[in-house]
Amino acid sequence: MDATARTERRTAGRTRRILKDRLRTIAPFATLVFLVAFFGIASPSFLSFANLQNVLQQISITGIMAVGLTFVILCAEIDLSVAAIANVAGVVIAFFTVQDSSVNIANIPLSGGWAILLGFAASFLLGGVNAAATTMIGLPSFITTLAMLEIGAGICAVLVRGQIAYAVPPLIQTLGSGSIGPVPWIAVMAALVMLISHLVLRYTRFGRYVYMVGGNREAAEYSGVNVRWIVNSVLIISAVCSGFAGMLGVAHFGSAQQNEFDNYLLDSIAAVVVGGTSLFGGSGGIGETIIGLLVLGVLNNGLDHVSIDSFVKILIRGLILLAALIINIYAQRLRESGAAA
């Protein structure tokens, strides 16, 4: 009797501990299930196949940026320049593509392959600047990437000078706005980036270092891990992902212009954090980011279906983000108290 009671108590204790450990991942998932159920009941059109396609398409660009950001946040750094770098890459490929004669930009047309290459090179370079300022000069990434946000916007402004370009290389055009069968190419690209990133984080040495550097940078340093190299890498990965997202985004929207992705900065950070990746680094991953993306995607899309005042929509999104942040910090505290005991 006594023994059973004790076993029960122990099982209950273990369940509680698992719940505590997983709070950060369980809460977003529960939110997602709740939102899907809610919108499914509230609006018959929400759960249609066409709408599902919509949701996927809507979250793909944010998704690719958020994947890059996941690396950065896992390392306990931040990248505020993702949207700006996306904009630069998008503008760069348009700048190096033949535009319609009505477009008044002093562009330099190159073949599609070169334009894409230059788009990637630009994002890589800007990511490299972020990395160098952060690890070599020692500026906090928050500051470095804030400056890069402005620099990126500046580069776009100089290249397009208030004009709008429309044409991008055919390959990017297909990947950004075409589809294979019912599946949009852009969603396939996002899935591919997510899959590769997940594999890198889970199964490679580099991925382990990312988690360890985020978990305890000092300890990683004292274990002979090249912390500087890891931080450099995640900032460059983030920039290249953003650049890719920006190129596809330009094709998706059918235009390249200034400030095109400004809304995406907050959305991508929100996706990572809402999903449950720790803001303090060291825990989380691509799986979490996908859940976060779906929560935001479903929320954005669902609110359109239930005809709510669009101003209230913004408020609701803000409240959801706040709740996610609170859970994130609270989960961190539980984890720390658990580790100390």
Binding site: R208, G215, N216, E218
Partner: peptide, 21 residues
């Protein structure tokens, strides 16, 4: 100790960190 170990990670990851390569 705080600056040499990963308290949140399992023992084996703490042991292997210096020899992963």
């Amino acid at each position: 100790r705080r600056s040499m170990l990963f308290a949140q990670e399992p023992v084996y990851k703490n042991v292997s960190i210096a020899i992963l390569d």
